[in-house]
Nucleic acid binder design. Sequence first.
DNA 1: TATAATTCGGACATTTTTATCCTAATTAAT
DNA 2: ATTAATTAGGATAAAAATGTCCGAATTATA
Lengths: 148, 148
Amino acid sequence: MLYQKGNMFSKACEYGIKSMIYIQSNHDDSRKICLNEIAEAINSPMAFTAKILQQLKRSGLLVSTIGAKGGFQIKNNKPITIKEIVLAIDGDGFFSKCVLGLKVCSSANPCPAHEAYKLIKENMIKDLLDLELDEFTKNIKNKTIALK
Amino acid sequence: MLYQKGNMFSKACEYGIKSMIYIQSNHDDSRKICLNEIAEAINSPMAFTAKILQQLKRSGLLVSTIGAKGGFQIKNNKPITIKEIVLAIDGDGFFSKCVLGLKVCSSANPCPAHEAYKLIKENMIKDLLDLELDEFTKNIKNKTIALK
DNA sequence: TATAATTCGGACATTTTTATCCTAATTAAT
DNA sequence: ATTAATTAGGATAAAAATGTCCGAATTATA
Ligand code: SF4
Ligand code: SF4
């Protein structure tokens, strides 16, 4: 093995996803959720996580309040999908690029993987990326998944 | 967008896949296929491609002969799958890691994506990664896909 | 035998991604 | 008013991935 890759999403994106799941899971109108708590909860480097939260803010998924007792909240408490987070952090490469890095393929001139891969991608989006954060919340509460 | 990611496989791996497709497509018992030709054909940096070919050799997918008229060939002319190339270059992260970077999931304690993702992954492997190189050869010959 | 074509590997350089540090601004609470 | 908790963002550092350079070894062929 030459390098250790094979991650569909960047580390930044994973932290983003986990942060959002954490924030959603711990939503409480009476308080904001602060960076420190988030980074601790998902076991991520704090300053790096800060950048990611800023990006999620810029993308309109989060809002924040500054100062003591400040922190982050999901904007308007709106349902958010994994896909929105991926787009905010990694951009649309995942959705637009050829997995194999090939060129000049289309439905008219398909590569052998074309039809199969199109379906795989559609399913991946439907069954994984279109999932909303709150679908993960109960699993966090059950402890059937963990963020760190 | 924070970074430009969203590649399932590393660049090295893409070059590896394309190199292998090229070598397979241009197989001819009377000659070897040299680095220069490969890098040109797939539009990849030559010295970098050299490293990748060495790795594919070490993994037992290629053989090479040194010196003038030397070059690379697929070991024993054996059919090779995309998966074998991915494993040789990127290791098994793609097959073993959680897409979302979560922990503690299992069939008994599944995350909301568990069943769906398991299926997606199985299909991805079956329909994309288990494809053999020679399935791509005809598409190269038809020019329905291109390596650069 | 000399030359050109080629693989092989080490060292180095660049770019991208990940991570840390530090200072300023803001706000709640004392 | 002061202090502590907090976001915000710039600068920098470290690590990983990608890419380049070079010299040594090997082999076909002129
Ligand atoms: S169909 Fe084939 S060539 Fe086209 S994007 Fe998918 S893997 Fe790449
Ligand atoms: S089932 Fe969920 S937690 Fe488990 S590997 Fe898949 S995405 Fe990750």
